[in-house]
Design a protein around this nucleic acid. Structure first.
Length: 269
DNA sequence: ATGGTTGGAATCCAA
């Protein structure tokens, strides 16, 4: 029986700056597929050669100068999904999608970087927050008009939906990433036909974070984290879920991202 | 209530 297909998602917060950390991650975990967000590199400057040397021959990426940027790295052949919408007509490089053909079967992979939304949780006075809500609404409409199979949706969704996805539910209810307009919308997106694969492994009453602000002196001691990064799968893949790990120690690597990688294993039945 | 840090580009913006 073939081994599991291993997938990692990570908001790397500058791919070029953190190539050594990506190498550390991939040599230890040997993922088949890596989905990155906030690559912050325009396509002509994408470090494709360095990634091929890490074993990722098959690449699909979309980046721009300074901000955003997403990438799918694969050891196995991939085909970019054609005719993807330009969400909110901004051409801001927040989504790539591909069919990945692994020895364990083909899966459709969607890699998202949902807008952070600024500080003020009022769409009438904060256009960034309005953009965030509109972005989630658009992708929700798109997935609900479509029947997804063997699909994995990952990325920095910039929303911590459950009470124990944040260090203090009460204190964060008015903080962007955990407000009811956001968490309700993320629930609607999930309900288009996905299962929260991280919570398949960790019960909802248990704290689970993937991001700790740079602004905390001692992130481990205060542990004021949030679960902003997610891995969702369609129900047909649930019987194949065989492992999940939040790579918490990556928050302590030299010059870390403020997000840590999340790993999922899918094993054929 | 406030400020705390980081990356990329440009002397500030986004997170």
């Amino acid at each position: 029986m073939p081994e599991a297909m291993r997938l990692v998602t990570w908001n790397i917060n500058s791919l070029r700056l953190r190539l050594p950390l990506l190498e550390k991650l991939t040599t230890h975990l040997l993922p088949d597929v890596v989905c990155l967000q906030e690559t912050k590199v325009p396509d002509p400057l994408f470090p494709a050669e360095a990634l091929r040397e890490l074993g990722y021959e098959h690449l699909h990426y979309r980046g721009m100068k300074g901000y955003n940027g997403v990438a799918i790295l694969s050891r196995h052949p991939l085909e970019p999904l054609p005719d993807m919408p330009d969400w909110c007509d901004k051409e801001d490089c927040r989504h790539v999608a591909a069919m990945v053909h692994t020895p364990q079967g083909s899966v459709e992979v969607h890699d998202f970087y949902i807008p952070a939304g600024g500080d003020e949780p009022d769409p009438d006075i904060n256009p960034k927050f309005a953009h965030k809500l509109a972005f989630v609404d658009e992708i929700t409409d798109w997935f609900s008009a479509r029947s997804s199979a063997r699909t994995v949706l990952v990325g920095d969704l910039n929303i911590a939906p459950l009470e124990h996805d944040v260090w203090s539910h009460k204190q964060l209810l008015k903080i962007v990433s955990h407000t009811p307009p956001e968490t309700q919308r993320l629930g609607r997106l999930l309900d288009t036909g996905f299962v929260d694969a991280m919570r398949h492994f960790v019960p909802p009453e248990e704290k689970l974070y993937t991001w700790w602000s740079y602004r905390n002196r001692d992130w481990q001691k205060s542990d004021r984290g949030r679960r902003l990064d997610h891995i969702w799968v369609t129900p047909d893949l649930v019987p194949e879920l065989s492992g999940m790990m939040v790579i918490r120690e990556a928050r302590d690597w030299a010059s870390p991202s403020d997000h840590v990688p999340v790993m999922l294993d899918l094993s054929p039945p």
